[in-house]
Design a protein around this nucleic acid. Structure first.
Length: 268
DNA sequence: ATCGTCAAGCGGCGGT
DNA sequence: ACCGCCGCTTGACGAT
């Protein structure tokens, strides 16, 4: 406070010291009681006095306090003393209206509180620092709760993604299994006759395949995503003119391709 | 003994 | 050069 660009000379330091004050218990040993002595044990001597009915001067300067002040500070020269409750309240009210301190207001406050203007400036500086810290804490809390919320959503999406991946794998294997079975049955029947159950492309009846698969999946409690996946187009894509794309002639190939856009999302 | 709070110290920086 | 503010630190003190 008294160093660097804020340096004051020794006389000024002494002047400011004379406005700092001993602990309340010390004062009470010899000083008269006063309504401006706050609950704190450390009190500014500038707070001693009474209410100015005119309101022009809030705190009275010490009149007969010097004797015990001198005694106190001779013994403890470099003690720091807190402002009184009333002084702080007064400064707080001033801070609420404007947290910057113009020179005029500083002098006015100093007179009203019986403090050095420099002490007023220091108080405002410290108060701004405390305010800033509080702002940062509030900001941190807000950002943190926002982060927690986003993280929770993200985690839920990850879980859902995993579930859906598993579901896709199950569906793939079921579709392959059912279609394989039908292929085998069809080829067995076709050995007898080729006219009964026309296969998809090469004779498999698509509606039968997917009806079987749907009921099978519903029994297993799969959700309705399966409904979409089980549309024939997912297995054997239709051409624009409505004709089925024929699967390869090789046994048990039923339309899934690694690069199938419908499933590429799930492949890692 | 340790911790939190607050007034004040200190050095740096920007404005005038 | 001077002044005021800022960030960081120190010292005093009360609370636990």
């Amino acid at each position: 406070m008294y160093g660097g660009g804020d340096a004051l000379n020794h006389k000024q330091k002494l002047e400011i010291s004379s406005h700092n004050h001993p602990p309340l218990d010390y004062l009470f040993q010899s000083a008269p009681s006063n309504s401006f002595l706050g609950s704190r044990s450390m009190v500014s001597f500038g707070a001693l006095g009474g209410v100015d009915k005119s309101g022009s001067s809030f705190f009275l300067q010490d009149e007969n306090g010097d004797e015990y002040l001198d005694e106190y500070f001779e013994n403890q020269p470099d003690k720091k003393r807190r402002l009184s409750v009333d002084q702080v309240q007064f400064l707080e009210r001033s801070f609420e209206t404007e947290n910057k301190l113009e020179p005029d207001r500083k002098v006015k406050l100093a007179k009203e509180l019986g403090l050095q203007p420099r002490q007023i400036a220091i108080w405002f500086q410290n108060r701004r620092a405390r305010w800033k810290t509080k702002q940062l804490e509030t900001e941190y809390e807000t950002l943190n709760s926002s982060y927690e919320s986003l993280k929770e959503n993200y985690d839920n999406l990850l879980k859902e993604n995993e579930k859906l991946k598993i579901e896709v794998v199950n569906l793939k294997s079921k579709v392959l299994g059912v279609a394989c079975k039908n292929e085998e049955q069809s080829s067995a029947k076709s050995d007898v006759t080729d006219v009964e159950s026309p296969r998809l492309a090469d004779g498999i009846h698509s509606s039968l395949v997917f009806e079987l698969d749907k009921s099978d999946l519903l029994r297993n409690g799969e959700d309705n995503l399966n409904e979409e996946l089980l549309q024939p187009g997912y297995i054997f894509a239709n051409t624009e003119d409505g004709n089925n794309i024929h699967p390869p002639a090789s046994s048990c190939y039923y339309g899934f391709q690694v690069e199938d856009p419908a499933f590429s999302f799930w492949s890692n």
